[in-house]
């Protein structure tokens, strides 16, 4: 039956020979194999090797930095480094306890300024309709501010706080850092609130909740891990910034807490500025302290980053 049908169709031979049984007849398989002798596949392999090598090469600086921090910074690390004040030139001991306190204080104050502003406007942005002009322009301003040079934040804080109050202070440093933290907090919080499933919001509204109740009882509790991710990233960025502190918080060789008073309107030490100041000094002790301070700073920044990332991952699962 089938052979009859086949016979009726012209062009298909009744007795199929090797040519029709083997659809790949006449194809030279060695031409299709990956081979270094063929320009097309050779180029492909060459590019793969180049790209892999470049990616690994790009990671060398990371490991070099971390290794040197542990090797050179770890040697100098001791209890004294955390509890003592920075040494004068040619002095042989000393530490950077006041700089750690200063960094934490300046970052904390910057967070106190930027968190309320960032979070409340993020709530507005997340609830705004897509055609809201204010929301879209603030969102765009936030994106542009993300790339705002940190030194210009320092220049701004200098003009607003230092010139107005007549002196360098921890507050001026905090204002500068808060400008750098604001866009991160604003944009990640908006994303976090938007990622809460729409049906949770609708359920709350269906129960008769006002917008405010929906935000505080449904949206924010669900979005908290991601918001905290943004906050931790902002802290990590703020703690590492040097340029805006150079001429706002300046530096100090004394404790922030002096005779029972917290001196927020005085020049204040920070780890980042200490590293910058000591790295350029011709004294071995100071350079070693700069490495140790860099190790402490990087560990602080990495811990903040890791907490932030683990919070973000927990939310995904």
């Amino acid at each position: 039956m089938t052979s009859d049908v086949a016979a009726a169709k012209p062009g298909i031979p009744r007795n199929p020979d090797a040519e029709t049984l083997d659809p790949f007849h006449g194809v030279d398989f060695s031409k299709l194999e990956r081979s270094l002798h063929r320009p097309r596949t050779f180029m492909s392999m060459l590019w793969t090797v180049i790209v892999s090598a470049m990616t690994l090469f790009a990671l060398i600086p990371l490991f070099s930095v971390l290794w040197l921090l542990v090797w050179r910074g770890g040697r100098k690390l001791s209890i004294a480094a955390f509890t003592q004040l920075p040494p004068a030139p040619l002095e042989q001991s000393g530490g950077f306890g006041n700089a750690i306190v200063g960094t934490l204080a300046i970052c904390g104050m910057a967070l106190l300024i930027s968190l309320p502003i960032g979070l409340l406007s993020a709530i507005f942005l997340a609830q705004a309709k897509p055609d809201n002009r204010l929301a879209s322009s603030v969102r765009f301003a936030g994106k542009v501010l993300t790339g705002f040079p940190s030194i210009l934040a320092g220049v701004f804080a200098y003009g607003v706080v230092v010139m107005a109050t007549g002196g360098y202070s921890a507050l001026a440093g905090a204002v500068a850092l808060s400008i750098l933290m604001l866009p991160t907090i604003l944009l990640t919080s908006e994303d976090a609130i938007r990622m809460v499933p729409e049906r949770m919001k609708e359920a709350a509204i269906g129960m008769g909740a006002t917008d405010t109740q929906t935000v505080w009882m449904v949206l924010l509790p669900a979005a908290v891990p991601r918001i905290l991710t943004g906050v931790m990233l902002a802290i990590a960025r703020g703690a590492g910034e040097t340029a805006p502190l150079l001429f706002t918080a300046l530096f100090s060789s004394y404790w922030l807490l002096w005779h029972g008073h917290v001196k927020l309107m005085q020049p204040t030490a920070s780890l980042a500025v200490l590293i910058y100041n000591f790295a350029g000094m011709p004294f071995a002790n100071q350079v070693e302290l700069a490495w140790a301070a860099a190790l402490v700073l990087v560990v602080m920044v990495l811990i903040a980053n890791l907490i932030g990332q683990s919070l973000a991952n927990r939310q995904v699962q």
Binding site: L59, G240, A290
Partner: peptide, 16 residues
């Protein structure tokens, strides 16, 4: 790891 490159403070890169 590549994002960590961005997390290291620029003053530490300066020192390095």
């Amino acid at each position: 790891l590549i994002e960590l490159l961005a997390a290291i403070p620029s003053v530490v890169y300066g020192l390095w």
